[in-house]
């Protein structure tokens, strides 16, 4: 049998799934192929040609460390530390909303309540509201006054 055909047989023989009757018959009569098969059987008994390289303990430790740092769940970032951050943000948002609501309602109450005469005792509940109003007034005072017209009004020339 020609050399090329022997190569084909060897290609098939290296993958046992392809070993058919034709290959077996050929190996029986072809000493070249039989020698190659014997060589490969011998090579297999020697073990894998890549098995002599083994990972060092330091390498395995680094892999272990990296694997332990990976999230086990399929949602990286949102579990663990991520959820506690979300809780904090939601908590702060709720606190701000509640405070704003309380201040607004107290403002409404104080606006509708009768004026407190000086020297009269102020109820403790309205202290906070008064403080808020005072602060608001101070802010308004701090703002510049409304702009005044710098040119004469047309009504001035009418006379």
């Amino acid at each position: 049998m020609a050399e090329k055909e022997c190569e084909k047989i060897i290609d098939q023989v290296t993958d046992p799934r392809n070993l058919n009757d034709q290959c077996r018959q050929h190996i029986k009569v072809c000493s070249e192929c039989a020698a190659v098969i014997a060589c490969m059987v011998w090579a297999r008994t020697k073990g894998s040609p890549t098995a002599d390289l083994k990972p060092s303990q330091a390498f395995l430790d680094r892999i272990d460390q990296s694997l332990n740092n990976l999230p086990t769940a399929g949602t990286p970032g949102i579990s663990g530390g991520g959820s506690s951050l979300l809780t904090w943000v939601l908590g702060i948002a709720v606190a701000v909303t509640v405070t704003f609501g309380v201040v607004t309602s107290l403002n409404h109450e104080s606006a509708s309540a009768p004026a407190v005469s000086p020297g009269k005792a102020i109820p403790a509940a309205s202290d906070a509201a008064n403080t808020a109003i005072e602060a608001e007034n101070q802010l308004l005072d701090a703002q510049p006054a409304a702009p005044t017209l710098k040119f004469p009004s047309p009504a001035d020339d009418a006379d």
């Binding site: 894998s48 040609p49 890549t50 098995a51 002599d52 390289l53 083994k54 990972p55 390498f59 395995l60 892999i63």
Partner: peptide
């Protein structure tokens, strides 16, 4: 990792 280290390294 132990099984395939050699193949990957080579």
């Amino acid at each position: 990792v132990k099984m395939y280290y050699g193949t990957v390294m080579y």
